[in-house]
Design a binder for these strands. Sequence first.
DNA 1: AATAAACTAGGAAATATTCCCGCTCGACAT
DNA 2: ATGTCGAGCGGGAATATTTCCTAGTTTATT
Lengths: 219, 219
Amino acid sequence: MGNKQSLDGAGVFRVYLIEDHTLFREMVAMQLKDNPTFQLVGQSGDGLEGLEQCRALRPDILVLDIQVPGMLGTQIAKTLINEIPSLRILALTSCTQNSTYDDLLAAGVHGYLPKDAPLSVLLEAFREFSHGNTFYFSRRATQPTHHDTTLSLLSEREVSVLKLFAEGHSTKIIADKLGICSKTCSNHMTHIKDKLRAHDASALVRLAMRCGLVDEVKE
Amino acid sequence: MGNKQSLDGAGVFRVYLIEDHTLFREMVAMQLKDNPTFQLVGQSGDGLEGLEQCRALRPDILVLDIQVPGMLGTQIAKTLINEIPSLRILALTSCTQNSTYDDLLAAGVHGYLPKDAPLSVLLEAFREFSHGNTFYFSRRATQPTHHDTTLSLLSEREVSVLKLFAEGHSTKIIADKLGICSKTCSNHMTHIKDKLRAHDASALVRLAMRCGLVDEVKE
DNA sequence: AATAAACTAGGAAATATTCCCGCTCGACAT
DNA sequence: ATGTCGAGCGGGAATATTTCCTAGTTTATT
């Protein structure tokens, strides 16, 4: 594969880090320092600042924490991939939510890594990048990933049920409000859980909040 | 100054890590491996498991991420300080959580470190610990919060149950983790709902999030 | 016309919840 | 010492919910 235009003559990759946990960031930096294949050209704990510096420094690789303050991680990825086509982005994320993963792929990142992955996997990701390959650490054998903004996975009725559930109504009340049998409502809930791969109330509520079905925090 | 009974003859400190982000945890482990003063005796990404292993291994130093699944960080600290008086605990926290700082000091931890501290401060904390000193990294302005009052309505056990519930575990799993009957767990849940006047899953999850029992909505 | 998917429920078995009850234990006051 | 109180544990029985099955109707798409 001759697509190593991001690699300069000496075979050294210029790396930039965007990650708000300084401790974490500096420890990743030390991992890189031990490896002569990589040269750390900068780091930041703020999304906007990191974006600006990447524009100026034009690194080969960006290690990007998606949960970074200042700017939405997926937006950073999308913007930079557009402006610097040669840039390879390794996305880090501390949560294992389903939708982020697909959002990241849609944004065009070249690697994905949850923070609860072992260190060896991070090093493997760097190795893959240094060989010009992409790296995906999938927590689940990936599906044909049609763009699911989570809610688009659900039917209209299912969205209604989920919203009412997240608002705190019981199955019976939901069924009542929708004019259906509580059994039907239960079945809808089961389908929702299957589709969203969220088989507990907690995950469902958080998903509903993320999708704006209910207010983030009340009172 | 003669309180170095936790230090064995060779001057090596036995360290245990509780931190759910494996990447972070293993990088801290590498920092320790470079220092002959410390010996890593174990690590875990789960609060309950970590507690059990600390009971068995009786380390000199515990590096404890407060936002760990399985058990409330402050409870882990309180419990272990009670059972192992010689244990020194260095508390890590990822968010500049409002009330946790005071809770931690109340729990009796010997060091406090936000994850956005520079690496040098972590190493300094280890240095202080190895000299038998405590370490407090002064954090930024703290605004008092109200959600202490919410949790103070609950007993210790009930907080544990609520946390595990908000993490998405079923009553059976929670009972299993806590070593109690699922019936007991159900009863705890009923009492929690009564005390918090939150009789549906959605309200419970939102309350738990507001109280910092689980991470906020990501992304 | 045929296929698919959404929406609707019923039956049956498994689980969960609620509301009782009683038990133990430690703290604390009389 | 004795009594009381609340935390924690869990059994029993009634009720509610969930899950997994099946299967009907409607609507949209090809």
